[in-house]
Every structure is written in C-alpha cells, then in structure tokens.
C-alpha cells in the first residue's frame, strides 16, 4: 500500500531507500540493498508507532483509567470515603448541574477570572516582548528577572499575595492609602477578589509568555521590516502590520494554552482565601474549586465527578469553537502555504 509519492509532500516514510531508479538487474549489491530496503520499509512503517507508543502507554495507564473511572463515578452516588461503593444514579448528577446555581456561578467566575487574567497577561507580554526586542543593555537580566515568577510555586506566590492584599495590614492598601485611596477589602466582593486573583495569575505567567513572543519576534525575517521601512512605515505601523501578523500562530498557541489553564484554575483561588468555598459568597469560586469542594469538603465523589466531566466537555466545546474560528480566519486570509 505504501506508494512513494515523495515528490508530492514532505512525508519521509517510503522516501528513503526503496525507490532508487535506474539500476539494472540483480547484482549481489542489489540484493543486499533490497533486503535492506525491506528492513527499511518495516522500519519506516513501525517506527512512528514505536515513537508514540511510550506516550500512549503511560497515558493509558495513568490518564485513561482515572478519566474513565471519573466518568463512571459521575453516573453514581458515591462518597469519597468509599469510592468502590457505588449506587447507580444515571444522569442525575448531570441533570442537577443544569439547575445548580453554584455551578453556574462557578462557571461565570471561571470565565471572568479567565478573561481578567488572560487578556492583560497576553497583551502585556506582547508589549514587553516588543520592548525587549529592541537593542539594549542588560537584556538578559530583564529576561531572567521576568522569568523568576514562573519558578515560584502557586503556594508560595499566593501566600505572599494574600498578605500583600490584606485589608487592614496589607502593603497594597497601605500604598493606596499613601495616595489617598480608602482601604479596599480584597477578600470579599466579586470584582475586587477576582481582580486580586487575576493579578496572581498575571504575575506568574506574563514573563513566560513574554519570552515565547520574543522568540517568535526574533524569528520574523528582517527583510519584512526593511521593506516596510522603505515604504515609510513607522515603528508602530511595523508592529501592527509586520510583527502581529507574523505572530498570529504563536498568539493562538498561547491563547489555547492559557484558556486550558484558566478553565482549570484552582490553586490560586483555593489558597487565596484558604477555603474551597472561594469567598463567603462564592465570589471567586472557580469550576475547579467547586469540584474540589464537592469532592473534598462535601465528600460527594459522584457530583464532583460530574463537574469534572462538565469541565472536560466544556474545554472540548471551546476547542471546537477555536477550531471553527481559525478555520474561518485562515480562509479569510487566503490559502497560502501547503
């Protein structure tokens, strides 16, 4: 079945030994080569699977079983302290989610915190990357310094930020007081708490995204800028018309990764208030946190599993939307490239 259309496209397989044209009859040399070519074909056919096998083996052992178990548990009444003692519940746990105000509240919070955290984070990262792309002294210092928050654990970062955001004794309110702004209660109220938590996320991830953007910027062919400059484009115009379009795939990549991260946001809101309720009125309870509260505070593994699967399905839907959007977008910008 493997026909070698190596002329058509990149695929390597089959493009190797077999089809060397223009040799006459069977010499010993030829025969050796044919045997080798047989081995080659086996090699090229089997090796892709060998290369991806470790991933799927490990995933099957440690990822698939939990996923299926969770899906199964979501269809049962089951308590954390007796995970094997299941009582069939059908779709009850999912149906309940539809009318569960706490679920919808958590979904809304996840969305707003996600937007509050992701949009500024990527925008700042883009701006900083642009600045770091200038010729300057100490660029490595700036780059390393901006990467340090990434090395800090969620626990350590949240611990510090929770103290900085204290109402009566936090440094942030102290600083606000210096400029005449009244103390803000960062630990209650939707807007303030969600803002505070978003800043923790922004703090930890901006540097990381900055460097990814910066790398992509450095890979933009310089002649594009040169010709733009010849056309009299200002630096700002160059950024807009050369840098941004070239970065689009990278931006989409970071958006996808950030979206997944935001949907699963968990550690920051948990540690910020020290409880899975996410504020006295669930002001910043995210989906991950609600699931955790259901499983580990209420010990209701069945309902927690249903929330987990709802998150899973939600991400898949988001994935489909992204896919559709980018399909449309790329159709709009014409089909260049293979």
């Amino acid at each position: 079945m493997t026909t070698h259309d190596s002329s058509a496209a990149p695929p390597v397989e089959g493009g190797a030994a077999p089809g060397r044209p223009g040799r006459a009859a069977e010499s010993p040399e030829e025969r050796r080569q044919r045997r080798r070519s047989w081995r080659f074909r086996m090699d090229t056919k089997a090796s892709p699977y060998a290369f991806i096998a470790p991933f799927f083996l490990f995933f099957g052992a440690f990822g698939l079983f939990p996923l299926l178990f969770t899906g199964w548990a979501a269809l049962h009444r089951v308590r954390l302290a007796a995970p094997n003692d299941m009582e069939w519940a059908g779709l009850d746990n999912f149906v309940r989610l539809m009318s569960d105000e706490y679920f919808w509240n958590a979904l809304g919070n996840t969305f707003t915190i996600g937007v509050l955290a992701t949009v500024p984070q990527l925008a700042i990262a883009l701006g900083l990357a642009h600045l770091l792309n200038y010729k300057m002294r100490g660029s490595n210092f700036f780059r390393v310094a901006m990467l340090t928050p990434y090395a800090t654990s969620v626990a350590a970062a949240t611990l510090v930020f929770a103290m900085l955001y204290g109402r009566d004794y936090g440094m942030i309110n102290w600083a606000l007081d210096l400029v005449g702004i009244d103390a803000v209660d960062w630990k209650s109220g939707s807007l303030t708490t969600q803002f505070a938590i978003s800043t923790i996320v922004i703090w930890r991830w901006t540097g990381y995204n900055t460097l990814i953007y910066l790398a992509a910027m450095q890979a933009v062919p310089k002649d594009l800028y040169e010709s733009a400059a010849l056309d009299g484009a200002s630096p700002w115009k160059q950024f807009l018309h050369v840098t941004l379009p070239s970065l689009r795939p990278t931006i989409l990549f970071t958006v996808v990764v950030s979206t997944i991260g935001a949907t699963q946001l968990f550690g920051e809101p948990l540690l910020f208030g020290g409880s899975p309720s996410g504020g006295a009125q669930n002001e910043y309870q995210t989906l991950g946190l609600y699931m955790y509260e259901m499983g580990w505070t209420n010990f209701n593994l069945g309902r927690a599993s249903a929330i987990a699967w709802a998150m899973f399905l939600l991400l898949i839907i988001i994935g489909l939307v992204y896919w559709a959007v980018t399909k449309l977008a790329s159709r709009g910008t014409a089909g260049k490239g293979a």
Partner: peptide, 19 residues
C-alpha cells in the same frame, strides 16, 4: 471489609498490571 464492586476492582488490578 470494604464492599468492592467487581468491576472497579478488576479495573484497578488491570491498570496495576499495565503500570
């Protein structure tokens, strides 16, 4: 004395063997 449903037990053991 935990009551275990057969299914999950077998699944767990199967996974264990795989691991």
């Amino acid at each position: 004395t935990t009551p275990r449903t057969r299914m999950t037990r077998r699944a767990a053991v199967g996974t264990a063997a795989m691991m």
